[in-house]
Amino acid sequence: MQRSVIFELIRYCLVLIALFFAMIPVFWMISMAFKPIAEWTASGADLTWWPKAPTLDNFRFIFGQNTNALIVELERTAGRAILASLLSSVIGTLIAMVVGTSAAYGLSRYNYGKNLPLALIQLRLFPPLAVMIPVMIMWTFLNLVDTWWGLSLIYGIVTLPFSFWLMKTYFDEMPKEIEEAALVEGCSRFRVFTRITLPMMAGPLASSALLVFILNWSDYLIALMLTTREWVTIPVYMASLSSSMTGQLYGAKAALGLIAAIPPVIFGIAIQKHLVRGLTFGALKQ
């Protein structure tokens, strides 16, 4: 394909403009994470885009080291919250992926669970807040409040629709000839699913898992309602970073935000080559 230099230039300009806007808040967060307290909320003429006196105090602070500028008691360090977020998001993602993928396959190949597509769309459409009171009562009754497994369970359930729908589109799209051949050769049905179908689905599985993981990792509301102290997650912990000495601890929040961006970014990079291929939703078939 012949392309003119001008076209390429325009493309670069447009990409750079998009990048610029995408990066403003990200840049602000990164810069904030290294700013000393005096620069956090500076405004007007004092506003600094780049920290004038860069410091690692914000990071030290959230991990429990006493920093002079921030004479605030931290009852919990961020380490625990990061652990809570990782554990509940990863297990929640596993639940959603395992249950969702099996169900999608069961429906796609064996036509069981015909109610699931609509039921799961309804589940996802529905604001979780609207049933928060019954869920809280259930979770308390089952002793699931403020536990990582309780949080993982609800995460697995609320993101189940995503994994189900994504995987179902791939299974529908996937040619069945290979599986049928294996069946004819006497391979058991379950083996066909686990040894033949799933390996072929590595890309879609990885990209669906990333989306589901991001959704779980982002949650603020559910964790706010269903945790009290032991398993408070990153967003909830972040909201508690404020003090009467200094107001909102923006630097500490940004430092935590920067750390919190690492797992999804690493996950994203790890599956980068699957990412685009994996999200076609089988919609190209027609």
Binding site: A18, L19, A22, M23, P25, V26, W28, M29, M32, I214, W217, S218, Y220, I234, P235, M238, A239, Q248, Y250, K253, A254, L256, G257, A260, A261, P264, V265, G268
Partner: peptide, 16 residues
């Protein structure tokens, strides 16, 4: 780089 915004935790995005 363009995919980074959706990897930022919404809570911290709110504060920023």
């Amino acid at each position: 780089a363009l995919l980074v915004p959706m990897m930022i935790v919404p809570a911290v995005a709110g504060y920023m």
